[in-house]
Simulated assay, not measured.
Amino acid sequence: MPDAETPTPTALITGASRGLGAAIARELAPTHHLLLGARTAEALSGIAAELPGNTPWPVQLTDYEALARACAPIERLDVLVHNAGVADLGTIAESSVQQWRNTLEANIIAVSELTRLLLPALRAAGGHVVLINSGAGLRVNPGWGVYAASKFALRAFGDALRLEEPELRVTSIHPGRTDTDMQRDIVAGEGREYRPGEFLTASTVARTVRTAIETPRDAHPTEIVLRPIARDTE
């Protein structure tokens, strides 16, 4: 817990309404004041009620005028967790220009702009940017090309930010496939039976985020890779 004389650090988590984002919020709530990001206030009603005393931060991340207005009051930010994103899968032969645009817009362009807008607040705090990447940001599987391209770009963004902003810490976290609603949609699209035991739990990935943030300042956790261990699914 923060020292009684030390202001409680603030963390902004995008995509905090459900799944991994909500798990990260639960993990950081004991030690941080949270800005809970999602597209709408309605989407945040559940997690806001579960974690009272924190601040809903509803904004569509790809509406850049609205995003700038939402960021303007934030003068100091200790942690920025980029969790929001999309996973629209399919082969390159089946892909469309719109699919590429939507995926890159959500997974890299909005991330870049939100970070840019918050750089003064992050610099003021000597803050920490956490990028929830993916195993797809390290290697590509068939049918994952569009998504993987966005995640490779996100990894490059993190590497560049780390070099350009040496007073900040920047951590790219690459979890394997994780038990979330998004994962259920992916497995349904693959035509397979969903077996939660095949995947990481959201709470495990969230704990890893907290561990990265709590790493002493003499170390810079630059990249963390997680892979699920097969469990009994029967």
Rank of each mutant, 00 (worst) to 15 (best):
T14S: 15
G37R: 13
T14I: 10
P9M: 07
T10V: 15
E42Y: 02
E27K: 06
T31M: 00
L34T: 09
T40E: 12
L44P: 02
P7M: 06
S17M: 03
L20K: 01
I13A: 11
T14L: 09
G37S: 14
A41P: 02
T14W: 10
R18D: 15
S17T: 06
T14C: 11
R39C: 11
R39Y: 09
R18W: 10
L34Q: 08
G46H: 05
E42C: 04
E42F: 05
T31R: 07
L36A: 07
T31L: 00
G15P: 11
R26Y: 09
L36E: 07
L44M: 10
R18N: 14
L28W: 03
A41I: 08
L35T: 12
T31K: 02
L36H: 04
A25R: 00
L34K: 05
R18M: 14
G37T: 13
P9E: 10
H32D: 12
G37V: 12
A23D: 03
S45P: 00
G15D: 14
A25F: 01
H33K: 03
A22T: 08
A16I: 06
A22S: 15
G46L: 05
A43Y: 00
A11G: 10
T8L: 11
I24Q: 08
A16L: 04
T14D: 13
T10S: 07
R26I: 15
L44Q: 10
T10D: 05
A22L: 07
A25Q: 01
I13V: 14
A25K: 01
A11V: 03
T40K: 03
P7Y: 07
L20R: 01
L35K: 13
G46M: 05
T10N: 04
I24V: 15
A25W: 01
A22Q: 12
R18G: 14
A22C: 09
G46N: 06
G19F: 02
T10M: 07
G19N: 02
A43E: 13
G46C: 04
L28Q: 07
H33I: 00
A38G: 14
G37Y: 12
A41N: 09
S45M: 02
A25N: 01
L28E: 04
A23P: 01
A38T: 07
A43T: 08
L28G: 11
G15V: 11
A11H: 08
A38H: 04
A29P: 01
I24K: 04
E42T: 15
P30Y: 02
S45V: 05
T8Q: 14
R39L: 08
T10W: 01
R18K: 15
G19L: 02
T40Y: 10
L34C: 10
T10H: 09
S45W: 00
A23I: 02
T31N: 08
I13L: 12
G15T: 14
L20D: 09
E27P: 04
L44G: 09
I24R: 03
S45A: 15
T40L: 13
T31V: 01
G19S: 05
H32Y: 15
P9Q: 09
T8C: 13
P9H: 09
A23F: 00
A16K: 04
A38F: 06
